[in-house]
């Protein structure tokens, strides 16, 4: 018998998840268009001049920050909501009854989310570069790519954890928004860091994996940072990468422990219905 290879199974799942994404306009809008609207709004409100404390233009600051935000939406938010809804609908249970290895299904979901995260970032940076004159520095590109890969992996694993702990598909958006949005406000996504930021808030931001993602990614777009060294290895943000790796590993381990393939109450608890003499 020709058992399909693991690779072809995962690839098939990625393609199928992508297809579903493109056919779900709401998800596509929030992942790809919504962060772009922030960029437009910020550059209109603040003008695309230099931000005094940072020495970079508004777009040079926000395009990478929002690219990270889009990538986190594509992985964390989408994975959590999509997976929790699929569980509510019984799709996960159906998958469990097929020979598809469970890991291949989850790998397909994550692979698709990572692909969409990359698209979201490319669109954001593309608009930034072409419309708002955002500049890139070749010596920081390796750091940019590594940061992005590690960040996406970290937030995919946290997305699976959020799916695992969300009681239902209805509550998954609440779980993700209640965690991601407050974090975004203290992680240099919407508000540039200034001299007045309290130290403790800075510390809190650094503990969670969003600010390290944003800072490491933004630094690749900061000319003052780019000028410090020509060595691409010297641009790597080891501390920030370490924080994301730690969160990612902890997230996926917890997710694997807590993951459910059936909706809550799937183990049908309760008394059997009384026996009646009707046709039922």
């Amino acid at each position: 018998m020709n058992r399909p290879s693991d690779w072809s199974l995962v690839w098939g799942q990625i393609r199928y998840q992508n297809k579903i994404f493109w056919r779900t306009p709401v998800a596509a809008f929030f992942t790809l268009v919504f962060p772009l609207m922030f960029l437009l709004v910020f550059t209109v409100i603040f003008g695309n001049d230099e931000i005094p404390d940072l020495g970079v233009t508004t777009a040079q600051f926000y395009a990478p920050a929002l690219a990270v935000f889009g990538a986190v939406s594509a992985t964390y938010t989408n994975l959590a909501i999509g997976t929790a809804i699929a569980r509510d609908l019984g799709i996960l249970k159906r998958i469990r009854g097929t020979p598809l290895p469970p890991w291949a299904y989850l790998a397909g979901r994550i692979g698709s989310a990572a692909y969409l995260a990359a698209i979201a970032a490319v669109i954001m940076l593309g608009v930034g570069i072409l419309v708002f004159g955002v500049e890139v520095y070749p010596e920081t590109l390796p750091s940019l790519v590594v940061t992005f890969a590690v960040g996406v992996a970290c937030w995919s694993s946290l997305g699976m954890l959020a799916a695992a702990v969300s009681p239902s598909g209805d509550s998954a958006p609440a779980v993700t928004n209640a965690t991601l949005l407050p974090l975004a406000f203290i992680s240099d996504v919407f508000i540039p860091p200034g001299p007045d930021t309290p130290v403790w808030l800075d510390t809190v931001g650094n503990i969670f994996p969003l600010k390290p993602f944003v800072v490491a990614f933004q630094d690749a777009f900061t000319p003052q940072v780019a000028a410090t060294t020509d060595s691409w290895l010297g641009h790597m943000h080891w501390a920030e990468l370490g924080v994301m790796v730690a969160w990612g590993v902890a997230g996926i381990l917890l997710a694997l422990r807590l993951f459910r393939w059936e909706p809550k109450g799937g183990e049908r608890v309760g008394k059997p219905a009384p026996v009646t003499a009707d046709k039922g």
Binding site: I20, I91, P99
Partner: peptide
């Protein structure tokens, strides 16, 4: 085992945009 069985459950959806 799962390669040799087929299951039609009562409440089971499939992604309906396919």
């Amino acid at each position: 085992f799962r390669e040799r069985i087929g299951i039609v459950l009562q409440q089971q959806a499939v992604e309906d945009v396919l």
